[in-house]
Design a protein around this nucleic acid. Structure first.
Length: 436
RNA sequence: GCGGGUGUAGCUCAGUUGGUUAGAGCGCCUGGUUGUGGUUCAGGAGGUCGUGGGUUCAAUUCCCAUCACUCGCCCCA
């Protein structure tokens, strides 16, 4: 039996051309984060399984993680997300760090789950977190950064939309207005999270089955439906209008308006799966009908750092996966044509001049030109074709004539222009095309 | 965990209402005379038709099983 040519299910091999796309995405992420003052960090890809069993994180460890015992019989899990790890990082230096603390990372994460569009078992996810700022400025910074990233990917506002909600608002409504107990509100929250995937009668039926007879008689179902139908803050029940979460949301939406982030809306049905969110949660949706789905999101989770036994730190953050982003960029045709990081392909006309050509190659490299050489005895045609296959922009052809004159043939494979130049001149021409 | 789809050359797929040497396009290799591309022309290599079993004189084509891939549901950043 021969070995499989495919990587394990749900994981990807990155060929050079895939790697270039990945590098492009990573570089936009990195640039954007650093532009906002965020610093990179990393943590091990393997974590003690306990980290994901903490309450508040509530990962379904058995079904959605790659967990196993190591040789020391310790239960380990491939990280499924970065939030618990970064929380530990901060807790470890809770006292020493200077706040607000801005951190980002691009970890590879693993989740053992069924395959479907936009979701694999292995993925990279930009994680951005801001620690130690409990003001609304933190929310604004998050959204502005997320928006900047989308802009850098050349997306326009028609292509995506921010949806905002407050976990605190939802909980206040469920507990205080509707009078639900803990169990009821957890179940209802789950239902709300899925209401867009089920028919209204089904949703209504399930909600009713959770409500007690007296709650049903008091018309709580209708109150809930009315709450969920609110398209703006103003449509929320009057009794809530002075609640801090509503004031916060209003503030936030107004600021976004001022910043010309016009594609942000309030959505009381936005929940997000993780239970650790404590207030504002947001999600970014692709507006394209073919790919109309949540692309990424985040929110405020003020409690996680505190789980490591230190004083809690107010935190807000978001995560952005590479697979959904790639879908987005593909559907909207935003992916740029990429070229090899190799800048030039140097070739000889026959092997008698290999030594001389290699000397030229060394000089070019010393001056910083990223150079691949081909001194094989293949025909020139073949060598040029190979350069094209590698998506390399320049070809440098060296024969006896070139060596004698110390003028080397430089051909731009994109424009077709071919001229003879000195080494010095070749270097500067190549440099002109860097970062374009 | 549930349901649908697909598995034929490197890739995308056609095809055989069961019957001798299984097809196309693209890609790949060679050549069109001696230092040049993405055009064109002529040749060529490459497939146990996912795997195992059954029915049959005969199966890649029918039946069963199995595996793999894929999409959706469940779940979820």
């Amino acid at each position: 039996m021969s070995l499989s040519l495919q990587p394990i299910k749900g994981a990807r091999d990155f060929f050079p051309e895939d790697m270039r796309v990945r590098e492009y995405i990573f570089s936009v992420w990195k640039e954007s984060c650093e532009l906002f003052g965020y610093q990179a960090y990393d943590t091990p890809i393997l974590e003690p399984t306990d980290l994901y069993l903490q309450k508040g994180i509530q990962e379904i460890v058995n079904e959605q993680t790659y967990s196993f015992k190591d040789r020391g019989d310790r239960s380990l899990t491939l990280r499924t997300e970065m939030t618990p790890s970064v929380s530990r990082l901060v807790a470890a230096r809770r006292q020493e760090f200077a706040y607000p603390l801005r951190l980002y990372s691009i970890p590879q994460c693993w989740r053992y789950e069924r395959m479907q569009r936009g979701r694999g078992r292995e993925f990279y996810q930009l994680n951005v977190d801001l620690f130690g700022d409990e003001s609304i400025n933190a929310e604004i910074e998050m959204l502005e950064l997320a928006d900047t990233i989308m802009k850098k990917f050349k997306a326009n506002r028609k292509m995506y939309q921010f949806k905002l909600n407050s976990r605190k608002l939802v909980d206040t409504f469920l507990n205080e207005v509707m009078g639900l107990d803990e169990t009821q509100s957890t179940t209802i929250r789950r239902l709300i999270d899925h209401m867009h995937k089920m028919a209204t009668p089904a949703f209504v039926g399930q909600v009713e089955s959770v409500l007690s007879p007296s709650q049903r008689e008091d018309g709580m179902l209708d109150k809930l439906l009315e709450f969920l139908r609110a398209k703006t803050i103003e449509e929320l029940p009057k009794s809530l209008s002075l609640h801090p979460s509503v004031i916060g949301l209003t503030d936030l939406l107004n600021k976004l308006e001022e910043l010309k982030i016009t594609n942000a809306v309030f959505d009381p049905t936005l929940i997000r799966g993780f239970d650790y969110y404590t207030d504002i949660a947001f999600e970014v949706f692709d507006t394209n009908p073919e790919n109309n789905r949540s692309m990424f999101g985040g929110g405020r989770y003020d409690g996680l750092v505190g789980m490591f036994g230190v004083e809690p730190v107010p935190t807000i953050g978001f995560g952005m996966g590479d697979i959904t982003l790639l879908n987005f960029l593909t559907v909207h045709e935003l992916l740029p044509k990429t070229y090899s990081p190799v800048e030039a392909y140097l070739m000889t006309t026959d092997d008698s001049i290999t030594d001389g050509a290699m000397q030229v190659a060394r000089e070019l490299r010393e001056m910083g030109v990223k150079l691949a050489v081909d001194t094989s005895n293949k025909k020139i045609v073949k060598k040029i074709k190979n350069a094209i296959k590698h998506d390399i922009r320049y070809v440098i052809i060296i024969g006896q004539q070139e060596l004698d004159q110390e003028q080397y043939t430089l051909k731009n494979l994109i424009t077709g222009v071919e001229e003879k130049h000195s080494i010095q001149r070749i270097v500067s021409l190549v440099e002109d095309h860097r970062n374009t």
